[in-house]
């Protein structure tokens, strides 16, 4: 069963016909040629497919494209302005926050979404006092980024990069 949908992807309006079974991730990668979000597990268990959906970080592999008709999608590719990387991306470069690079666009989108969540005052599992604004220390960054697995083990550099980008 096919359906016509319109998405705004990295600032561009894209209209396409999708199988109702097509996930947002596959629509982006296989239909629109937007390869920045990666498929690492296809079951919401690794975070490589993380994009910002209407500004919130989500796993695009568990989202049906047809259910996102009209949505705004931002990928890591869309975060940079031309050749100028987003401050989070710049920090990843400086801190060597990746090795093979496959989880990286998801880490970057997740970090950007996460920093907005912190700005909005959202607590995390390790926030000591739920009634206060969270203070973004390393433990908070680690907990909040735990939905993004990295098999190369770049975690410590990712944390340093995010810490710097948050300042």
């Amino acid at each position: 069963m096919d359906a016509e949908i319109t998405l705004r992807v990295d600032g561009q309006r894209r209209t396409l016909s999708v199988d109702t079974r097509t996930t947002l991730l596959d629509a982006l990668r296989e239909r629109l040629g937007v390869i920045s979000p990666k498929k690492g597990c296809d079951h919401g268990q690794c975070g490589a497919c993380t994009v910002l959906l209407d500004g919130r970080r989500v796993t695009s592999c568990l989202t049906l494209a047809v259910a996102q008709d009209g949505a705004e999608v931002t990928t890591a590719e869309g975060l940079s302005e031309g050749d100028r990387p987003h401050p989070v991306q710049q920090a990843f470069l400086e801190h060597d926050g990746f090795q093979c690079g496959y989880c990286t666009p998801g880490q970057v989108c997740s970090a950007v979404g996460m920093l907005d969540e912190v700005k909005a005052g959202w607590p995390s599992h390790v926030t000591e006092n739920l009634e206060e604004e969270p203070d973004l220390d390393d433990e908070e960054i680690r907990e909040r980024m735990s939905g993004n697995l990295c098999r190369c083990g770049a975690y410590t550099n990712i944390v340093s990069a995010i810490r710097e980008a948050a300042e």
Binding site: R57, G113, M114, T127, R144, S146, N148
Partner: peptide
Amino acid sequence: LAGASGQLRN
């Protein structure tokens, strides 16, 4: 907050 991940909770 103990459940899933930030992306999934969204």
